[in-house]
């Protein structure tokens, strides 16, 4: 095995890792926002909202991420929806901003379904007496959720949520297919340029691991700290 290509091509991995992190970061934000909304709808009293949120979760979880990505990337263009191209953002990313957005939104929508289920389980794990106590004091349901249920639920779901962040970093490699210059895409470029089919992939795997491993270690520490504060 020969890794001498790294002396010339290491910046490819740096740019790729940067873009993977950016993609995952925004996908997580969208995913958590959607997930919170989905969870609240799923446990709420409103039947149409409950149906729509349940259908969302089932559909997203029951279809491949690759299909979802293509639907967003090609399908929206086909029906005339195009993400705005912001030149400055494109330059910072080194890729077309509109393409990047398609990737972020797909990952966010996908993750939202899983995060929604995580939050729902977390909310439902809180003792019914907590809701009763808050409501008996005259707090409305939204205030009960905000001040009493969610702070406890988030603590409970932190391990599962952390795992979901790690999954997003890994699964985001799929956006390389639509030409977003993430870590996987860059590794493929290196393979093509160096005529080495194998070694650049090993490096990519290692870089992915260097992203996910410290993240899970960090999340484990946060979790432990929260435990001891109980």
């Amino acid at each position: 095995m020969d890794f001498s290509f790294l002396s010339k091509y290491w910046p490819y991995y740096v740019i790729g890792a940067k873009n993977t992190i950016l993609l995952a970061f925004f996908a997580v934000i969208i995913g958590v926002a959607i997930g919170m909304l989905i969870a609240v709808c799923r446990i709420g009293k409103d039947k149409p909202l409950r149906f729509v949120s349940a259908a969302y979760v089932e559909f997203i979880r029951g279809t491949p991420l690759l299909v979802q990505l293509f639907i967003i990337y090609y399908g929206l263009q086909a029906i005339g929806i195009r993400f705005p191209d912001i030149p400055l953002a494109s330059r910072v990313l080194g890729i077309n901003f509109a393409d990047f957005m398609a990737g972020v939104i797909t990952m966010g929508i996908n993750s939202g379904a899983y995060v929604g289920e995580i939050f729902r389980a977390g909310i439902q794990s809180i003792d019914k007496g907590q809701t009763e106590a808050a409501r008996s004091l005259g707090l409305s349901w939204p205030k009960t959720l905000r001040y009493v249920i969610l702070p406890q639920a988030i603590r409970n779901v932190l391990p599962a949520l952390g795992n979901e962040f790690v999954v997003i970093i890994k699964e985001s490699s799929i956006v390389s297919i639509i030409g977003i210059a993430d870590l996987m895409y860059k590794a493929n470029t290196v393979r093509g340029n160096t005529f080495k089919p194998f070694e650049p992939l090993l490096v990519a795997a290692l870089v992915y691991f260097m992203l996910t491993f410290p993240l899970s270690k960090f999340l484990a520490r946060v979790e432990k700290r929260m435990r001891t504060h109980d």
Binding site: G129, A133, A134, R135, S136, G138, L139
Partner: peptide, 18 residues
Amino acid sequence: DRVRQNMGMVFQHFNLFP
């Protein structure tokens, strides 16, 4: 909620917010 603001309740299992 306004009804309950005027009618407090104490529970068997306390239900304090932990």
